[in-house]
Amino acid sequence: MSTPSTNVVLRIDNLESYYGPIMAIRGVSLEVREGQIVTVLGANGAGKTTLLKTISGVMDPEKGTVKLQGEEIQGSEPNQVVARGMVHVPEGREIFPLMTVAENIAMGAYTRSDKQAIDEDTELVYSYFPILKERRMQAAGTLSGGQQQMLAIGRGLMARPRIMLLDEPSLGLSPLLTEEIFGIIQRLNAEQKVTMMLVEQNAAVALSIANYGYVMELGRIVMADDAATLAASKDVQEFYLGISQEENQRGQRRWKQRKTWR
């Protein structure tokens, strides 16, 4: 652990979750410490999104526990989870297309009723995403993909979360926009003290801002280490960063190479 002194915000033990008869999460355990950016890497179908949905209460786990600041929250409804300070920014934005940008942001504060603080937080969101302020009276469905992603993150911030679950914020964005969004995520983490759990396929970008990382495959955690160590590891470089190792004499036989964890 990089900073073992800080508190554990989120702790998951032996979580198992099913999509109908298919076991999507096969006994996952992990922890996220306060102030960290923790990333979960994995290919399509590794179970990353299911993991986040199970944590935030949209899906119920079959077994295992999810502890948010020491209290068990598995199986509770999403509105209770949001009120306890954990917000989930879903994959593919999922904004309210016919409502204006400002109304979308207001919906992020649904579980709160402290009007003055909500107004302050709205301004805070606009200070991180000035383009949203410019477009605040526009229907959210007319925004570009990158702006919609900003709206989804800004809307999530309105719940004043201790920890934010981000599902593929880079989905469908250009490399330049991805960099911009990740820059803002990093700033939110540093300046607003929002702990982040970041699920990504784009391993290079995710590892560049994360403190700690997990690698997920077929519903299991197969590697866990500091982000820098992960980025330097041979397996992650080969399978997630696309840096090919020195070719052997008979040319590339990548598909035959065994991952160390199998």
Binding site: V58, P78, N79, V82, I95, F96, P97, T111
Partner: peptide, 10 residues
Amino acid sequence: QNQLAAYYMG
């Protein structure tokens, strides 16, 4: 407009 997103917002 978006039931799932409404769930996520609590």
